[in-house]
Design a protein around this nucleic acid. Structure first.
Lengths: 195, 195
DNA sequence: GCGATAACAAATATTGAAATCTGTCATTGC
DNA sequence: GCAATGACAGATTTCAATATTTGTTATCGC
């Protein structure tokens, strides 16, 4: 087989893997499929990614990155902490809901990783809770929030909103009452933070 | 085969079904197994329960009933609403966690029903949210809570604690930090209710 | 020498035939 | 009369033979 025009970079492999996952879903996609899509032997893919699991994780990390970036902007924004917190939680829910609907196969990949306690997902969650902590700490600093432990409060906010960001609940996100449920939970939590 | 000594009541069928579910788990248990355990033909079981799904639902209802009863006692108790609410949420979490560990096969049955949007589970949830509403309304009535809509607040409390009662999260309940997570969420929610 | 490969063993998935299960109903026996 | 039965059709599951996939490695071509 003639060498492909562009060199075989990890990036190109990840793109091909994303395509294959989108087409076949995480249950059916194989490394051989990825290699076929790239026009190389599957041994070559293994030269760049040690295992199939590592390949899937790398795809998930790439897929989660933009979401993480958008939220980071909100967390580091200026303005009232309460407004920022509400916006951050709303954006997170909105992004999850949108991507679960738009890209079901890649979302399923992410769900599978979450189920098997992947390190990449754990790191992603740690980053997001860290962003929450930034907002809470800012709110405490200028007297807007009354909490005494920003880290513990950030964790509590994360867990209390699990229904709206944990992929295990994805099937509930398109029920019509879910948006109202989110607003109710949000309001209750924000009231709990006020002095 | 000689007729069994005791008459074949729905109650006896449910007991046998529970045994079979405990032994084989919801994935393997069959109606034929239940009939065998009772020493009757499987047609006889279908005379009492229209479908296998109805049989499973009836087992789940029976299994959930004591939990529902214990919580009802707390909801209707006298005393401070805040203390009752904390006790109610704590008991719910504790009961779920204990039973998920003690009776994994029956818990898996309940999880399967929850996943397939069973009416019985929806009714059970409605009853529990109703109990929360009783506590919240009592708290509002004597000025202990500041919420303006007891029903909406009860729903918010339910959803904000999903991680600690929804069977989809059962695999997280035995992590050592989960109890602390629960306390943090509880504290934040209760603070949100105070005037 | 170096990236890519093809051949390979072990684990996993697929397939199709046989067995079992679900749900129905005409018949049985008390 | 009526609870229980067993035979039955169609759907589902099991099982074992076969094929594919995962991950390794000795070899190739440049």
């Amino acid at each position: 087989m003639p060498p492909s025009e562009t060199p075989l970079t990890p990036e190109r492999i990840l793109e091909a893997t994303e395509d294959v996952l989108r087409r076949y879903g995480p249950a059916k996609a194989t490394v051989v499929d990825v290699a076929r899509a790239l026009g190389v032997s599957h041994g070559t893919v293994y030269r760049h990614f040690r295992t199939k699991a590592a390949l899937r994780e790398a795809v998930a990390v790439r897929w989660l990155a933009p979401e993480q970036g958008d939220l980071c902007v909100i967390a580091e924004d200026s303005g009232a902490a309460e407004e920022r917190l509400r916006r951050w939680l709303g954006s997170l829910f909105e992004a999850k809901r949108r991507r679960a609907g738009e890209d079901p196969e890649l979302f399923a990949t992410f769900l599978a990783l979450a189920r098997e306690n992947s390190d990449a997902v754990a790191r992603h969650i740690a980053v997001l809770i860290g962003q929450l902590e930034v907002i809470v700490a800012a709110g405490i600093a200028d007297g807007e929030f009354a909490a005494d432990d920003a880290a513990a409060t950030a964790r509590a906010l994360w867990h209390a909103t699990a229904r709206f960001h944990d992929p295990a609940h994805a099937h509930e996100w398109h029920a019509p009452e879910t948006a109202a449920d989110f607003d109710e939970v949000c309001a209750l939590l924000l009231r709990g933070l006020r002095p």
